[in-house]
């Protein structure tokens, strides 16, 4: 069982985030980290490969500036290798442009299964994995809260509004996993050392046989018109609990007729 995991390297969400004033895209200078949302897919892939008794986990990522620090984190968790598509032409790519790049990369790797997060933490469009599946001509099962594999199929508990559906798909397929689906392991010291020498294949848009006009800002066919400060919600009354704050809450709930 060979599993490819789509991972994204993003600016630290705990840091200061900003938009480039001219392109209105997220500023991605400096160190990028592995999106926390992706650690679940990496962990799930490692567990599925182990359960299948063989195979390996390959990371697939796209980044504007040959950034690999986030990939090293996932390699340290146990992924065998990575494919990084890095090209100036990719700046400003939207979800569909990203899916085109990932589809070309996945076609080279030919995995049995592709895992991805339901959405990234920075862009959070949540459409890339399904666009990827359509471009590959594969089935997709999104919002998985449990995943099991057999040699030729994957069984997923898929989140629904009412509960969950049990969905079975033939392989190859794309599956997106929700956070909390498994507990991601922390990279061990040995894992971190080993990750330094694991192969990261760097490819350009041309290497994948894609036209530069199909990806990046040129391919996105959308534009930001304006960015303005939102109407602010004002802070109300702040009280410090001295043993009676619950009474203040009860009074508030009475006032708004909830009680």
């Amino acid at each position: 069982m060979n599993v490819a995991v789509c991972v994204k390297q993003i600016p630290d969400p705990a840091g200061e985030l900003a938009l480039d004033p001219s392109t209105h895209t997220l500023v991605r200078e400096g160190k990028l980290i592995l999106d926390d949302s992706d650690s679940y897919g990496v962990e799930m892939a490692l567990q599925l490969v182990e359960a299948a008794g063989g195979g390996e986990v390959t990371l697939v990522s796209m980044a504007p500036n040959n950034e690999t620090s986030g990939l090293r984190t996932a390699l340290a968790m146990g992924a065998a290798k990575a494919v990084l598509i890095s090209d100036e032409a990719l700046a400003g790519s939207d979800a569909l442009g990203t899916a085109k790049v990932l589809a070309a990369a996945v076609s080279r790797i030919q995995p049995d299964l592709v895992l991805a997060a339901t959405e990234s933490t920075d862009g959070y469009t949540g459409t890339t994995p399904v666009q990827l599946a359509e471009l590959l001509g594969w089935p997709a099962v999104t919002f998985a809260k449990k995943v099991e594999v057999s040699p030729d199929s994957v069984t997923v508990q898929r989140q629904t509004e009412a509960g969950y559906d049990e969905v079975v798909s033939p392989l190859p397929a794309v599956v997106t996993v929700t956070a909390g689906v498994v507990e991601p392991r922390y990279p061990s010291f040995k894992g971190i050392m080993a990750a330094r020498s694991k192969p990261v294949e760097e490819l350009t848009v041309a290497d994948l046989g894609l036209e530069a006009s199909a990806v990046g800002a040129a391919g996105a066919r959308q534009e930001v018109i304006s960015v303005q400060a939102a109407e602010e919600r004002k802070a109300g009354e702040i009280v410090t609990d001295e043993g009676d704050a619950h009474q203040r809450i009860v009074a508030y709930l009475e006032q708004i007729k909830v009680l």
Partner: peptide, 15 residues
């Protein structure tokens, strides 16, 4: 739609 429609719902569970 052929292969893209390969995933099938085998059971529905309401929480």
């Amino acid at each position: 739609t052929g292969a893209t429609d390969g995933a099938k719902v085998k059971g529905r569970h309401e929480e």
